[in-house]
Computed example of a mutant assay.
Amino acid sequence: MAKKAERPVGPIVDPLPPGSKPDMRPLHGRWVVLEPVIAATHAKDLYDSFKDSDPSGDVWTYLGYGPWQSFEQFEGWLKEREASRDPWFYAFIRRDTGKACGMGSFMRADAPNGVIEIGHIWMSPGLQQTREATEIIFLMIRHCFDDLGVRRLEWKCDALNAPSRKAAERFGFGFEGIFRQHLIVKGRNRDTAWFAMLDKDWPRIRAGFERWLRPENFDEKGRQKAKLQVA
């Protein structure tokens, strides 16, 4: 009688993920610092960062919240984010001004399997497409792989959000597909584009970020000389 073929299985994971979750430590870069959101400290700067520079509310097009009609409304919303644990919210602080001008979070932590997502990312118009913006994402990714020991880092966005999809690929996330009719956001259908980065890819991607972030890669106005290359 012929021997029954063994069914294929995945490789053994050794060592297993450490099972760490975000502990709200500050994340320090050359041009930015990421601090746990504190409404009393960050609300005014965050509100000012978009209230005049984004009158049409473009920052909030693909997010499940915003824009706000008053500072008081925004401050109340931010107090809820301050108390949240998963998502864990951070404020983005520019070192040159000391002002908070954006936010993001670590979320959907699956510590036993070594999986986490970065999301709820928004940046004021003045922060977008700057070296500071790229350093922010680098610090978030580095924290996930180097401090938390994750195996898989996820990035998700509205499938219609072309800038976010382009950013994910620029930062080294691989596109994995579209989850159709995934969510209802502000009464509208959202198909979600899924991206991910794996721990085995991180050393190569990290080297690309570090090359790009060297001070000599920027002119006196902070403009890049060479593009980010993580492939």
Score class of each variant (00 low, 15 high):
Gln69Arg: 11
Gln128Ser: 06
Ala100Tyr: 03
Asp146Thr: 09
Lys99Pro: 00
Gln181Cys: 04
Trp212Lys: 05
Glu35Tyr: 12
Arg7Glu: 13
Glu210Gln: 14
Asn113Pro: 05
Val37Ser: 05
Ile205Glu: 01
Trp77Gly: 02
Phe209Leu: 02
Arg180Cys: 02
Lys99Glu: 01
Arg25Ala: 15
Glu80His: 00
Val185Leu: 09
Glu6Trp: 12
Thr97Asp: 09
Tyr90Leu: 07
Val150His: 04
Arg214Asp: 05
Asp54Trp: 02
Arg214Val: 00
Arg142Cys: 05
Phe74Pro: 02
Ser70Glu: 06
Thr61Glu: 13
Glu117Gly: 08
Gly187Leu: 06
Asn217Gln: 06
Asp45Cys: 00
Lys225Met: 07
Ala231Glu: 14
Ser53Lys: 13
Val185Trp: 02
Trp77Arg: 09
Gly174Ala: 12
Ala159Phe: 06
Pro55Cys: 00
His143Gln: 13
Arg81Gly: 01
Val150Cys: 05
Gly57Asp: 09
Asp86Cys: 01
Trp202Ile: 00
Glu154Phe: 06
Ala133Cys: 08
Glu210His: 14
Arg85His: 13
Val185Gly: 07
Pro8Ser: 11
Pro67Ser: 04
Phe209His: 07
Asp58Val: 09
Asn189Pro: 04
Phe106Ser: 02
Ala167Thr: 04
Lys51Thr: 02
Val9Met: 10
Gly64Tyr: 03
His28Thr: 10
Ile38His: 15
Ala100Ser: 08
Gly208Pro: 07
Leu148Arg: 01
Met123Tyr: 13
Arg223Ala: 05
Arg152Pro: 01
Pro26Tyr: 12
Trp68Asp: 03
Ile118Gly: 03
Asp14Leu: 06
Thr41Tyr: 13
Ser105Asp: 07
Glu220Val: 07
Asp45Ala: 01
Thr130Gln: 05
Glu216Met: 07
Asn113His: 15
Phe173Trp: 07
Pro163Asp: 14
Trp68Thr: 04
Arg81Gln: 12
Asn217Ile: 00
Asp146Trp: 04
Pro67Gly: 03
Pro163Met: 14
Phe89Met: 11
His42Gln: 02
Ser70Lys: 08
Ala2Lys: 15
Glu6Met: 14
Ser20Leu: 15
Thr61Asp: 13
Leu198Cys: 05
Gly64Asp: 10
Gly98Trp: 11
Phe175Lys: 08
Gln129Tyr: 13
Val37Gly: 03
Gly149His: 13
Ala43Phe: 06
Glu210Gly: 09
Ile137Gly: 04
Trp122Pro: 01
Leu46Asp: 05
Ser49Met: 14
